[in-house]
Design a binder for these strands. Structure first.
Ligand SMILES: [Mn+2]
Ligand SMILES: [Mn+2]
Ligand SMILES: [Zn+2]
Ligand SMILES: [Zn+2]
Lengths: 131, 131
DNA sequence: ATTTAAAACGCAACATTGTTGCAATTATTT
DNA sequence: AAATAATTGCAACAATGTTGCGTTTTAAAT
């Protein structure tokens, strides 16, 4: 069964094309990259598609300071009830791509006086392929 | 001695006003907030001021998914040679502000096959004041 | 103190990124 | 097959960020 149907949205041609672009990459991509990959396209529909995909737990934003906003696919746990990521974002200084990388245990954080509910990590360095 | 002079840029009226806005807040603020705080202002000059401040290690961007871009002051270690932050970003679900929070030890991260050079953490939960 | 040179400012014009309303189209349900 | 609901595509707009250039301000040199 189709991922789109699973997430309770209609599996239209446009959405399948957008999804296909994400499946072709193993790293986070920008809206620009998507636009270049899909042939004819309507910018507005693309923005709405992305918004829907984020709401439904198909995509999530990947924000790195001083970089273009990027998007990447979620794991199966995410849904309209919320996102749940056990992964970090890793920006490689060599290939310059940003990878979503699963980790067994996301490092925890203790902050005196603060109640920490969730944590999100962006690391940088040299990736597996470039190492 | 003035922070601006310390960082080797001219301490103009405009820059001092922008800096003052940051000193009034103990959390990250948006460009919109700055614009509302300084009386008359030129948007272009503000954008250039921010860019300069980031380059000189006075400000850094604070990016949280699905939120307006924010900015916050750096610690003294940052300079045009680079930023060096031993702090995390904490978004409070109650007051909705994002705080830069110093930590004694930033949690480390081991990734099989990856060389981790730096790490950046965004946490969320309930802050000290709201707890 | 005056002159000079560099840096910063302010304006106009533009580029990029993202949103809203609405009519036409497409997908699902009856 | 018809009715219904979701999605699309267009136009128009709003928000965010950039570039060029002449004027003003600042710091340095005389
Ligand atoms: Mn990710
Ligand atoms: Mn910070
Ligand atoms: Zn790499
Ligand atoms: Zn709070």
């Amino acid at each position: 069964m189709d991922l789109l149907t699973q997430k309770n949205i209609r599996a239209t041609t446009f959405r399948k094309e957008v999804l296909a672009v994400f499946l072709e990459h193993d790293y986070a991509i920008s809206i620009n990259t998507i636009e270049k990959s899909i042939g004819k396209h309507d910018r507005i529909t693309l923005y709405r598609t992305i918004k829907t995909f984020i709401e439904k737990g198909i995509l999530h934003e990947v924000l790195i300071p001083n970089e273009e906003k990027k998007l990447a696919m979620c794991q199966s746990e995410c849904s309209s009830d919320g996102h749940q990521h056990d992964h970090i974002h890793f920006k490689c200084e060599a290939c310059e791509e940003v990878y979503c990388k699963e980790v067994d245990r996301v490092p925890q954080l203790q902050l005196e006086g603060f109640k920490v509910k969730s944590i999100e990590i962006n690391a940088s360095g040299i990736c597996e392929k470039c190492g």
